[in-house]
Simulated assay, not measured.
Amino acid sequence: MSETFPVYGTGHLGSVANAIDVLKAFGTRGEWRVTELSRELGLGKSTTHRLLQTLAAGGLVEQVAERGTYVLGMELVRIARAAARRTTLGAVAHPHLAELAERTQDAVLLTVLRGHRYLCVDVVNEAHHIISVVQLGDTVGLHAGAGGKAILAFQPTVFRSLVLGEPLVHYTDQTIRSPEELEVELESVRRNGYAFSDGEVTAGSASIAAPIRDADGRVIASVNATTSSSRMRELGIERYRDPVLEAAHNISADLGYVRPGGAGRGRGQE
């Protein structure tokens, strides 16, 4: 006797697939109106609204009533945090993030490459003087902020060209919007081994980030120390640069990466 199975895209399975597509849409854009999201996904407005309401009931998305939009919910953030720490990268990196946060007394972020954006997957925040930083689950264009530039600078030339060929989103007045200016900045990152940002994503915050490599030497993530712009100017870049480079090197080493011509751990090397 042959069995029959639901066809993907119909019935209850189709609803689940549509719900997954809704959640994935928040990975490319942090906030959606029902009309915009329905058009993006090719779903009816009423269907999209029902999906969002169901996800909101489970805490996976939240409605921002005053703006008439939806954002990711804290329950999904909690799930993402737990999942990130169970992955090899998350499990390996977290103790180093905690140590770096203790040393700097500032916010430390782990960001990973996701398409042409970077995703914040872990935060250890000792920066009680910081009002606003990139939060867990946020995604940002690779051209903006130290975390993104530390990843983008070490990607293959073809990949970088694709990113630079897209419109560069304007987060603040300090965001780099010229492909030519960004290419010069990325060359500096490759030369120095770390990226610097002052107000490129959030006005009034500055950060230093360094690339994290997997066992094959590919840059897959970055570690980022973030503080206020005024505190960075007061204490100096050097206070953050060397601990961030050390953390990135140690995370990479724990993932199995061995620098050409070197082995083992080293303080402040990358």
Rank of each mutant, 00 (worst) to 15 (best):
S46F: 12
A65L: 10
R39L: 10
L51K: 08
G58L: 13
A25D: 02
G68K: 12
E62I: 06
T28D: 07
I20A: 06
E62V: 15
V16W: 06
R50K: 08
V34D: 00
S46C: 03
R29I: 01
E31P: 00
H12Q: 14
V16M: 10
L23F: 03
H49T: 12
F26N: 02
L41C: 14
V61P: 04
L37T: 04
R39H: 06
E36Y: 00
T35Y: 05
G30A: 13
L43M: 08
V34R: 02
A56N: 07
L60M: 13
L51T: 07
V64H: 06
A57F: 10
H49W: 10
N18C: 03
E66M: 14
A56H: 05
L41P: 04
T47C: 09
L60N: 05
G30C: 04
Q63H: 13
A25E: 05
G44M: 04
R29Q: 14
R67Y: 09
G68Y: 08
G68S: 12
T28G: 10
H12E: 07
E62H: 08
N18K: 09
L52Q: 06
F26Y: 07
G44C: 05
G42F: 11
L37G: 02
Q63G: 06
G58A: 10
H49Y: 08
G44N: 05
V22Y: 00
V16G: 03
T54V: 12
A56C: 13
R39A: 14
E62W: 04
E36P: 00
G68P: 05
A57R: 15
G59D: 03
T48V: 11
R39P: 01
L55K: 03
L52I: 11
V16D: 04
V61N: 06
S38L: 14
A25N: 05
N18I: 00
N18L: 00
L55T: 03
W32L: 06
A19D: 07
V34Y: 01
L60S: 07
V34S: 01
G68A: 14
G30Y: 05
H49Q: 13
R50L: 14
K45Q: 15
L41I: 07
G68M: 09
E40V: 13
D21I: 00
L60F: 12
T28W: 07
H49F: 09
E31D: 04
T47V: 14
A17V: 04
A57Y: 15
A57N: 15
L23A: 02
T48S: 14
E40L: 09
E36C: 00
T35I: 12
K45N: 11
L55E: 02
H12W: 08
A19N: 15
R39V: 07
E31H: 01
L51W: 05
Q53K: 11
V22E: 01
A65P: 01
A25F: 04
W32S: 02
S38Q: 15
A65Q: 14
E36N: 06
G59F: 03
A19P: 01
R33F: 01
R39Q: 14
E66G: 05
E36L: 06
F26T: 01
H12I: 11
L13V: 15
V22C: 02
L13Q: 08
T35R: 10
S46L: 13
S15I: 02
E31Q: 10
A25R: 01
L55D: 00
L52M: 10
R29H: 09
G14E: 12
L13M: 06
A25W: 02
G14D: 14
A56P: 00
E66Y: 11
A56M: 13
G44S: 12
A25M: 09
L23R: 00
L51S: 10
